[in-house]
């Protein structure tokens, strides 16, 4: 079954935790883009949703940090953070262990993927689900790309990982959707929180929407750090989504730089018939 959906969104915890502090017009624009993506995700009738995330030391720490990992559990729980701080109630989210096992097995032909039968979702997964599957009823399979603790997987390998992910999903009988989630430029949780490099973001989105594999794979961490902050390392998830969408092009539904959310809030989707 071909992939039924590939999208990408931001996940800053401020989007839900500090929702009331954003400029109302920007917030409304972001909300309506999330609503649109949520409807389109539902219309694609997925059996399972893979969230390609860049978690923040919730499950993987510096004592054992996989470059790539996939969840393999019957269910997950989140948020791991304080509910009030994040503005999202803790709950159980259904998984799909059988599909996870099949995808991990297939991916191991190409990538030394770690897996985990225990996984607590942090804001990186919960914020996207809050908007995209607000009933939290669609089975989710989390994927993590280490974007927090360098050394990190190179961006050209994140693209390649996405290609393999897309291929094994396409060869699977279930209807699979993918949503990648990460920042573009941002300096989250530092004194520079709120700084957003819009020029850099728009240049990235130009390359990304055109699915320019060479340009996306060329991003180098020292340059990314200087221009886009440590939060910019999370472009790996967007790049993996581009790999999964192969030659298809994307459309950006929303790019709203919202300082109190600490990121240029992005909602986007690949047109899977454009390749």
């Amino acid at each position: 079954m071909p992939l039924v959906f590939v999208g990408a969104v931001s996940h800053g915890p401020g989007i839900t935790g500090r929702a009331e502090r954003a400029d109302p017009k920007q917030k409304a624009n972001l909300d309506s883009a999330f609503d649109r993506l949520s409807r389109e995700l539902a219309d694609s009738a997925p059996d399972v949703l893979i969230v390609v995330a860049a978690e923040h030391f919730a499950n993987f720490f510096m004592n054992n940090m996989p470059a790539y990992a996939m969840g393999m559990a019957d269910y997950y729980e989140g948020p791991i953070e304080d509910e009030e701080w994040l503005g999202i109630k803790r709950r159980r989210i259904p998984g799909d262990r059988k599909t996870s096992v099949e995808l991990v097995s297939a991916l191991l032909n190409h990538v030394d993927l770690a897996y985990s039968e225990e996984w607590k979702f942090d804001h990186g997964v919960m914020v996207p689900l809050h908007f995209l599957t607000p009933a939290f009823d669609l089975p989710v399979i989390p994927v993590n790309i280490n974007c927090q603790g360098p050394p990190l997987t190179p961006c050209h390998r994140a693209y390649q990982f996405g290609q393999y992910l897309g291929e094994v999903c396409a060869a699977h009988p279930r209807r699979i959707a993918i949503v990648a989630t990460g920042g573009l430029s941002h300096w989250p949780a530092t004194p520079d929180s709120g700084k957003i490099n819009q020029t850099w973001d728009r240049d990235f989105l130009d390359k990304w929407t055109r699915n320019d594999a060479a340009a996306l794979g060329d991003y180098d961490d020292s340059e990314v750090y200087a221009q886009a902050g440590q939060g910019g390392f999370e472009i790996r998830t967007f790049i993996a989504a581009a790999g999964a969408a192969q030659d298809c092009k994307a459309e950006v539904y929303c790019y709203e730089p919202i300082p109190i959310f600490a990121v240029g809030c992005t909602v986007a989707r690949f047109n899977l018939s454009s390749g």
């Binding site: 360098p150 530092t190 004194p191 520079d192 709120g194 300082p259």
Partner: peptide, 12 residues
């Protein structure tokens, strides 16, 4: 750690 280059000026 990671933050040796942040300028601390921020935007908010």
């Amino acid at each position: 750690g990671l933050y040796v280059m942040t300028d601390g000026r921020g935007a908010v």
